[in-house]
């Protein structure tokens, strides 16, 4: 694996950077976490939301937010689809509550033990097929790769 390659997934899973999420990927490419808000009332919006559910306005403003949050929930994925997953061990995916008020799903920036629910994390980026995607860094240094459960049989 070269430095430019993702530790987790095959580059064929690189997301399309156009469409409604384009501002997120444009910011990520420059190392900024950029997310949507209602321009009128400042409510944090879901990534594909076009009309504010708080005030009804349709003016979405993307702006940089603090790259930090806490873990809402987390899983460790054991099933690793041949050809799509490069990681050789089970890998965590976390659903993070950002301090901006958004929720965002992320893998770890590097292989690590799963952060517990409620744990603070910071957000940086993985590079998948040349596309920057948000990734968490556990605030507490991980103690090593995750230990597979004893009955593990990934496929």
């Amino acid at each position: 694996m070269t430095a430019a390659e993702d530790w987790l997934l095959d580059p064929s899973l690189a997301p399309s950077t156009g469409g409604r999420l384009a501002p997120l990927y444009a910011g990520a490419a420059e190392g900024r976490l950029t997310l949507p808000f209602c321009a009128a009332c400042d409510l944090p919006l879901e990534l594909e939301q076009q009309v504010c559910d708080g005030c009804g306005r349709d003016d979405v403003a993307w702006r940089d937010v603090a790259a930090e949050g806490t873990v809402h929930t987390v899983t460790v994925v054991h099933r690793r689809e041949t050809g799509l997953v490069r990681a050789e061990d089970p890998y965590p995916v976390a659903d993070v509550e950002l301090t901006s008020g958004h929720r965002l799903l992320m893998a770890g920036r590097r292989p690590s033990a799963p952060p517990a629910i409620g744990t603070p994390v910071t957000v940086s980026f993985r590079f998948l097929g040349g596309v920057a995607v948000p990734a968490y860094d556990a605030a507490v240094p991980a103690s090593g790769p995750p230990t597979p459960l004893p009955q593990e049989s990934p496929r």
Binding site: L13, A14, P15, S16, G18, L47, V77, V133
Partner: peptide, 12 residues
């Protein structure tokens, strides 16, 4: 690979 689902899949 597009939209929210594309980002989720890119996250594993």
């Amino acid at each position: 690979t597009s939209g929210v689902r594309g980002l989720e899949r890119a996250s594993g």
